Measured scan of single mutants.
Amino acid sequence: MQGVVKVNSALNMRSGPGSNYGVIGTLRNNDKVEIIKEVDGAYEIRFNGKVGYASKSYITIVN
């Protein structure tokens, strides 16, 4: 499943599905991501070869 990031500035990509996990990357508006699955209000995603988590509130599914 594919998604597009929709933010005003940037969205943190984290090592786990919550803000208490470390930041492993930054997503920008209109970045395209692969959605692997939904976990606790976040999506597990793949972006630029990395797998991490981002809030589903800022990712629009575009299948």
Rank of each mutant, 00 (worst) to 15 (best):
G3S: 02
A54P: 01
M13L: 13
S19G: 11
T26I: 15
L11P: 02
Y58A: 11
V33E: 00
A10Y: 15
S19H: 12
D40Y: 11
G25K: 04
V7P: 02
G25N: 06
G52S: 02
N30G: 14
L27R: 00
G16A: 06
I59P: 00
E38D: 06
E44D: 00
A42Q: 15
V51R: 08
I24L: 06
S57K: 15
Y58V: 06
Y43F: 09
K32V: 14
N8E: 14
D40S: 10
E44H: 10
G16C: 07
A10V: 15
G22L: 13
V51L: 10
K50W: 06
G49S: 06
G18H: 08
S19I: 13
N48D: 11
G22S: 15
A54G: 03
T60N: 10
I45E: 00
R28E: 09
V23I: 13
V4T: 07
N20Y: 09
V51E: 05
D40C: 14
F47M: 04
E44F: 13
L27A: 02
V4P: 01
Y43W: 07
V51M: 08
Y43S: 00
R14Y: 15
G52D: 01
G25R: 04
V4D: 02
I24K: 02
V33Q: 00
F47I: 06
G49N: 09
G49D: 09
G18V: 02
P17Q: 04
V5C: 06
S9Q: 12
N12G: 10
S19N: 13
V23S: 07
G52V: 02
V51Y: 07
A42V: 13
I24T: 06
V62F: 09
G25M: 12
G22C: 15
V4K: 06
Y53C: 02
V51D: 03
N20A: 11
G41Y: 08
V23N: 05
Y53I: 02
M13A: 04
G18L: 05
G3R: 01
I35E: 00
K6G: 05
I45F: 05
S19F: 11
K32A: 09
G16M: 03
K32F: 12
V23Y: 05
L27K: 00
Y58W: 07
P17E: 04
I35H: 00
I24F: 02
G41A: 07
A10M: 13
G25D: 13
G41M: 08
L11T: 10
N30I: 02
V39I: 11
R14S: 08
K6R: 13
S15Q: 07
N30H: 08
E44N: 07
G3E: 01
L11D: 02
T60R: 12
I45T: 00
N12M: 13
K37R: 15
N63C: 13
T26P: 04
N20D: 12
A10L: 14
N48W: 06
D40A: 12
R46Q: 08
V39L: 10
R28D: 05
E44Q: 14
G49Q: 05
S57R: 14
N8C: 15
V23P: 05
V33P: 01
N12P: 15
Y53D: 01
I45H: 00
I61N: 03
I59R: 00
Y53F: 11
Q2Y: 14
S55W: 12
M1E: 06
M13W: 07
I36F: 07
N8S: 13
N12W: 12
I35R: 00
I59T: 00
Y21M: 08
N8R: 14
R28P: 01
R46F: 11
K37G: 14
G3V: 03
N29H: 09
G25A: 14
F47L: 04
Y43H: 00
G52W: 02
S15R: 07
G49A: 05
Y21T: 13
G41P: 02
Y58N: 10
T26N: 06
I61W: 04
G25L: 12
S19P: 15
R46I: 13
V7I: 09
E38H: 04
A54E: 01
I35F: 02
K37F: 05
I45N: 00
V62S: 09
G16T: 05
G16I: 03
Y21K: 05
V39Q: 06
G3A: 06
V5P: 01
G52I: 02
M1W: 13
N30E: 08
F47W: 11
K6C: 14
V39F: 09
G16P: 03
K6N: 10
I59F: 06
Y43E: 00
P17V: 07
G49I: 03
R28W: 08
F47Y: 09
N8W: 10
P17G: 03
K6T: 11
S55A: 12
V62P: 07
D40F: 11
E38T: 05
V7G: 09
I45D: 00
E38A: 08
I59W: 01
V51A: 06
N48E: 13
N20H: 13
V5L: 03
V5Y: 01
N20F: 10
R14H: 15
R28Q: 12
M13V: 15
I24V: 12
S55P: 14
D31I: 03
G18M: 04
V4C: 12
G16N: 06
K6V: 11
N30D: 10
I24D: 01
M1G: 06
G49E: 06
D31Q: 06
N8L: 12
I59C: 02
F47T: 03
A42P: 00
V33G: 00
E34T: 12
S9P: 05
R46P: 01
V7L: 04
S57N: 13
I59A: 00
Q2L: 13
T60G: 06
S15T: 09
D40R: 10
A54R: 01
R28S: 10
S57W: 12
G49P: 00
N12K: 14
N48T: 03
E38K: 03
I36C: 08
E34H: 10
Y43N: 00
N20P: 06
V39S: 05
Y58L: 06
E34Y: 12
V39G: 03
G41I: 05
E44G: 03
N30F: 08
M13K: 02
V7F: 06
V33M: 02
V39A: 06
Y58R: 05
R14F: 15
I59E: 01
S19K: 14
K32Q: 11
N12I: 15
V5T: 02
N30A: 07
T60S: 12
V23W: 04
S15F: 05
G3T: 02
V7M: 04
N30W: 07
G52N: 00
E38I: 08
I61S: 04
Q2F: 14
L27Y: 00
N20L: 08
G25H: 11
G18Y: 06
L27I: 05
R28A: 09
I61M: 08
K56R: 07
A54Y: 02
P17K: 04
F47P: 00
S9M: 09
